[in-house]
Measured scan of single mutants.
Amino acid sequence: MDPFLVLLHSVSSSLSSSELTELKFLCLGRVGKRKLERVQSGLDLFSMLLEQNDLEPGHTELLRELLASLRRHDLLRRVDDFEAGA
């Protein structure tokens, strides 16, 4: 399986429902409101961002910004580990 997708799945499974709600709010300018209403998990949101090329294995800035906004430094370390091994 693609290591970047494994990372996104790992991050998604670590998010609380309130954190997902916050991420959806933060992505309002990037993803349409109707699409965001269908998001049920972090993976749903990340999939939309992947489709729009806002997220890519070599383009993790948005993911970092979102996780920093949540103050999830543990998840930021996972992104660091991914990039160190990528």
Rank of each mutant, 00 (worst) to 15 (best):
D2Y: 05
V6M: 14
L43F: 15
K24L: 03
A84M: 14
S13Y: 15
R38C: 10
L28F: 09
D2G: 05
S10C: 10
R38T: 14
L23N: 00
T21D: 10
D74M: 00
A68D: 08
S18A: 12
L67F: 06
T21K: 14
L28Q: 15
V6H: 15
R30F: 08
D74I: 00
Q40E: 14
T60R: 01
G42A: 13
S13I: 15
R71Q: 13
L76D: 02
V31Q: 02
E37P: 04
P3Q: 14
E22Y: 11
S17P: 14
S47N: 15
E56P: 05
S13H: 12
H9K: 15
A84H: 13
L15Y: 00
L8V: 04
A86L: 13
L36V: 09
E56K: 13
E19P: 01
S18D: 14
N53E: 12
P3Y: 06
L62D: 04
E61W: 11
S14K: 11
P57W: 10
D74G: 00
L23T: 03
K24S: 04
R71I: 01
S47R: 15
L75E: 02
G58V: 05
F46R: 01
K24M: 05
L55F: 11
E51N: 09
L45V: 08
L8S: 02
D44Y: 02
R30L: 08
R78Q: 12
G85Y: 08
L45R: 00
K33N: 09
V79G: 00
R30C: 07
S16A: 05
P3V: 05
L36F: 05
L43G: 06
L75D: 01
S17F: 10
H59D: 14
E65D: 13
L66T: 03
V79F: 05
P3M: 08
K33T: 11
G58I: 04
R64S: 05
R77G: 08
L26I: 09
T60K: 03
L45W: 01
R38D: 14
L66C: 07
S16M: 04
S18K: 14
L8Q: 02
R64H: 07
D81Y: 06
L28I: 14
E19W: 00
R38A: 12
P57H: 09
V11G: 01
R38G: 13
V31Y: 07
D81K: 11
L76A: 07
D2E: 06
L7V: 04
G32C: 10
